[in-house]
């Protein structure tokens, strides 16, 4: 096959493609919107699983709340339940708002500004979640210990193994939360580059 033959075949194929244009405006716009949503579906699925785990813990704590027999354990219990309900719900709401943004309605630039605002809100929530999760660790341990083992750790001294477990949990949390936050930023950062392009 000579180059000229390749050209002729290519040209013939192009003509065939021209004849059978299958896409309609409706399909094109739906495809674009779906693609945008797909970019967040993995993140949303992960967050949904995370939220479900948190809600299951809430159910567990509510069923066993009676076992918390001192005022400070009860405060820890209320804080734990509040934390496990509020933060995942806010994150899911924020993600839903970003994902359901009608990117085809209005100019892309206008939508991008809304997106950036929402993204920053989400990142702030995540940042807040990181700091609060350290606090949660310290209130979750006494609550869980009381409910599961019926021991008030405020009145018992720590065994070396328990201290090691707490330190390991803290180190794990430090790296896990950093990784989680970085992943969020990576997914959402590309939009800021586009905004810069639009402004230039």
């Amino acid at each position: 096959m000579e180059l000229e033959e390749l050209r002729a075949t290519w040209s013939e194929m192009s003509q065939e493609l021209e004849k059978q244009k299958k896409l309609t405006n409706e399909i094109i716009l739906k495809m674009t919107q779906d693609r945008y949503r797909k970019k967040f579906s993995k993140l949303r699925n992960l967050e949904t699983v995370g939220a479900m785990i948190c809600y299951l813990w809430v159910v567990f704590f509510l069923f066993n709340f009676g076992k918390l027999d001192t005022w400070y354990l009860q405060i820890c219990g209320v804080l734990t339940i509040g934390f496990l309900i509020i933060l995942p719900t806010l994150v899911l709401k924020s993600l839903k708002k970003i994902q359901n943004l009608d990117i085809l309605n209005g100019s892309y630039k206008k939508n991008l500004v809304i997106y950036i605002k929402e993204k920053n809100r989400l990142l702030k929530l995540q940042q807040m979640g990181i700091y609060l999760s350290y606090l949660l660790l310290f209130i979750l341990v006494p609550v869980s210990t009381k409910i599961i083992s019926n021991k008030n750790i405020f009145l018992t001294s720590f065994k070396p193994l328990q201290v090691i477990a707490l330190v390991v949990a803290l180190i794990f949390m430090f790296f896990f939360t950093r990784w989680g936050y970085k992943s969020y930023k990576k997914i959402t950062n590309s939009a800021e580059d586009i905004l810069r392009d639009l402004d230039s």
């Binding site: 896409l23 405006n25 094109i28 085809l104 309605n105 892309y108």
Partner: peptide, 21 residues
């Protein structure tokens, strides 16, 4: 330029180009 209809029209008209790439 900038609205969805303009965009869809352009893609529809040049879909062969995308297919080839």
């Amino acid at each position: 330029m900038g609205n969805a209809k303009d965009f869809a029209d352009v893609i529809r008209k040049h879909q062969g180009l995308i297919y080839k790439v």
